[in-house]
């Protein structure tokens, strides 16, 4: 049934669409560059202990 297929299409996107967008947003939020520090020169605070 084409109508069923078309409706499945819509369900796919109602389900998959938000999933993709949420996955993307969560993935972005865990970037170390977005929160902490990186190893790139000049970006890393160094905790020194005394010799």
């Amino acid at each position: 049934m084409i109508r069923a297929q078309r409706r499945r299409h819509l369900w796919w996107w109602l389900l998959l669409g938000p999933l993709i967008l949420v996955g993307f947003a969560v993935g972005l939020s865990v970037r170390p560059s977005a929160s902490a520090t990186t190893a790139r020169p000049g970006a890393t605070p160094t905790q020194e202990a005394s010799p």
């Binding site: 999933l19 993709i20 996955g23 993307f24 993935g27 970037r31 170390p32 560059s33 977005a34």
Partner: peptide, 18 residues
Amino acid sequence: AYGLIVMHVTLGFLQDDV
């Protein structure tokens, strides 16, 4: 496939990007 690709880029290149 589209969802996988979005996550491939998000968890790949975008993790290094500022």
